[in-house]
Simulated assay, not measured.
Amino acid sequence: MYIRILGSAAGGGFPQWNCNCPNCTGVRTSSIRTSARTQSSIAVSADNKSWVLFNTSPDILSQLQSFDKLQPHRTIRDTAIVAILYVDAQIDHTTGLLMLREGCPHHIYCTDMVYQDLTTAFPIFSMLEHWGGNTIHTIACDGQSSFNIEKIEQLSFTAIHLDSKAPPYSLHRHNPHIGDNIGVFIKDNHSGKSLFYAPGLNVISDEVKSFMHQADCVLIDGTVWRDDELVKLKISNKLASDMGHLPQSGKGGMIEVLSDPKLNNSRKILIHINNTNPILNEDSEERKILIKNNIEVAYDGMDIEL
C-alpha cells in the first residue's frame, strides 16, 4: 500500500493567511525551522497507479500538481483518481471538489450524514449537477462492513464512527449523528498491511482503540498541542475539545493514547496540524517530546509505504 500526504495542515493551512501567531510569523520570516503546509488530504493506492483521494481540500489543485502520480499521462483528459472518500463534511475537507468539476462524474464514497450536509447546508453535490454530477456510494460506519472500490480491489476499507463534531453549518452541529465523522481502516489484502486514518478525533472509544491496535500505521488527529491553545493565544474562546479535537498533551491526550504498548510496533504519525501547534517548530520542546515517544509529524509530500 502506498500513501501520499498531499496536505498535512488543519483548516487555513500553514501559515494561515491572516495569522501572526509565533509559528506563522516564524515561517514567513524563516526565523524557525519548519515548512509550509496545505490543508489536510491524503491519497492511497495499491499499485502506485490507481489512487483513492481522501478529502478534497481547498488546496487540491496545487496538491495534485505537486504529485506526478496524479497527473494526466494517458489520454487528452485523464486522472489516476478512481474515487474520492470523505471522512466528514468540513469546508477544509470538501471545498476542493468544486475545483474538480471538469472531471465529473467522480465516484464519491461518504456516509449518509455527510451526503445530507453536502446536499443541503453546504450543497456542493447539488451544485455539481450542472457539470454532470457525481456517482455517490453511501457507506456504513458500523466498524464491521468493509467495502471495496473498483480498480483498487486489493484494498478493503472499513469506516468507523468517531466522536467528533459536525461542521458549524451542519444541522447536526449540536445534535450529533452517527456518520458525521469517520475514521477509516484500510487493509492491503495481498500484503496484510493496514492503515488507520482519522484526521479529526475527540474521543478514543474502545472500537477506535481496537482498530488502532490492528494497524501497521496510525495516521491521526494532530490539530493542537493543548486543549486551551487557541484561548491562550487569544485567537478563540473555544477549547480544542469544543471543536472536536483531542490535544496531544495532558492526561488522556494523544501522546498518552499513542504510548500504549500495543502500538509499539506501529508507525504513529500526526496529521491535520493547526498553525498554532508548537510541534510545527522542529526545534521546539514539544517536537522533542514527540520524538522521544516515537511519534512523527506529517508534512506535505510525505510518502508512506506499507
Rank of each mutant, 00 (worst) to 15 (best):
A46Y: 05
K251G: 08
V224T: 14
L61K: 15
R4Q: 10
S57P: 09
T138M: 07
D300E: 09
A215C: 00
K251P: 13
G252N: 05
D112Q: 15
T138H: 03
V82A: 07
G132C: 11
D68N: 13
R33W: 05
A43S: 02
D112T: 07
T25D: 09
E286I: 00
K288Y: 01
S259W: 11
H272S: 06
H213V: 03
H107G: 07
R28E: 07
K165D: 04
Y115R: 14
D303M: 11
G96T: 03
K292G: 07
G244E: 02
L246M: 12
A240V: 05
G96Y: 03
N293K: 13
S249T: 08
Q71I: 14
H177E: 10
S145W: 07
S236M: 08
I139L: 09
Y2T: 08
T29A: 10
K268E: 03
R101H: 14
R74S: 04
K268G: 01
N181H: 06
F157H: 10
W131E: 13
I60T: 11
V208C: 09
K151H: 14
H174W: 08
I289Y: 00
I304L: 15
R173F: 05
N23C: 00
S30P: 05
S205F: 07
I152R: 02
S45P: 02
L128E: 03
R287I: 05
I91Y: 08
I182A: 01
N265K: 15
I289E: 09
D242T: 03
P261S: 12
F14I: 12
I124W: 05
G7Y: 04
D188K: 10
H93I: 09
Q63C: 06
G252E: 08
T29L: 02
D216T: 12
W225T: 08
A121T: 11
I76Q: 15
T29C: 12
H106M: 06
L195K: 04
C217H: 10
V44M: 06
G222M: 09
V224D: 08
G132I: 03
S35A: 13
Q65L: 07
V297D: 12
A215L: 08
S8L: 02
T223W: 03
C110A: 14
R267C: 01
S205Q: 01
Q214G: 05
A215N: 00
S236W: 00
T56E: 12
S241F: 11
D180E: 04
S191E: 07
L53G: 01
L53N: 07
R77E: 14
G192N: 07
D242E: 09
R226L: 01
A9I: 01
K251D: 07
Y197A: 14
S266N: 12
I42N: 10
S266R: 06
K234T: 14
S156E: 00
V231Q: 02
M302C: 00
L239M: 00
K238D: 13
Y2Q: 06
A159P: 15
V218S: 09
G26F: 11
N277L: 02
I289G: 11
T79F: 09
S45L: 01
D163T: 04
A80M: 03
D112R: 04
C21A: 00
Q16W: 06
V257C: 07
D180Q: 01
T158K: 06
E305F: 12
A83D: 11
R37G: 09
N293E: 10
D59M: 04
K232F: 14
L270F: 05
P123T: 02
S236I: 00
K69A: 15
F122Q: 11
D206V: 04
A166P: 02
S35C: 00
I139Q: 13
